[in-house]
Amino acid sequence: MRFSLLFWAGFWAFLLDQASKYLVVHWMGLARLRSIDVLPPLLNFRYGENRGINFGLLDNGADLSRWLLIGFSVLVCLIVLTWVMRAQPARWMQLSAGLLVGGALGNVIDRLLYGYVLDFLNMSCCGFNNPFVFNVGDIFIFVGAAGLILFEGRSGARRKKAP
Rank of each mutant, 00 (worst) to 15 (best):
L99E: 06
Y116Q: 01
K160W: 15
A146S: 14
F132D: 15
R154M: 12
N135F: 13
R158Y: 11
R159K: 13
R111S: 09
F128K: 07
V25D: 12
F142R: 13
L68G: 07
S73T: 11
G137A: 06
L95F: 04
S35K: 12
R66K: 13
H26M: 05
I53S: 13
F14H: 04
M28W: 09
F120I: 02
G102C: 07
V133Y: 10
T82V: 13
S4W: 11
G61S: 09
D17H: 05
C125D: 05
M123C: 12
F128E: 09
V136W: 05
M28G: 01
C126S: 15
S4C: 11
I139K: 00
E49Q: 00
K161P: 15
L42R: 03
A104R: 05
I149L: 15
D119L: 06
V80N: 00
N50K: 02
I36L: 05
G71V: 01
P131Y: 14
P40M: 08
A104P: 02
L112W: 02
G98D: 05
R51N: 09
G52K: 02
W67F: 11
I53K: 05
G29S: 02
L33T: 01
W92E: 07
L16D: 11
P41W: 11
I139S: 03
L33P: 00
M1A: 04
A19L: 06
F55T: 12
C125E: 09
P40T: 15
L15V: 09
R2K: 15
N44Y: 08
G71A: 11
L58P: 00
L148N: 06
A157V: 11
A87N: 07
C125P: 03
D59M: 14
D17S: 03
A90Y: 09
H26N: 03
A146R: 10
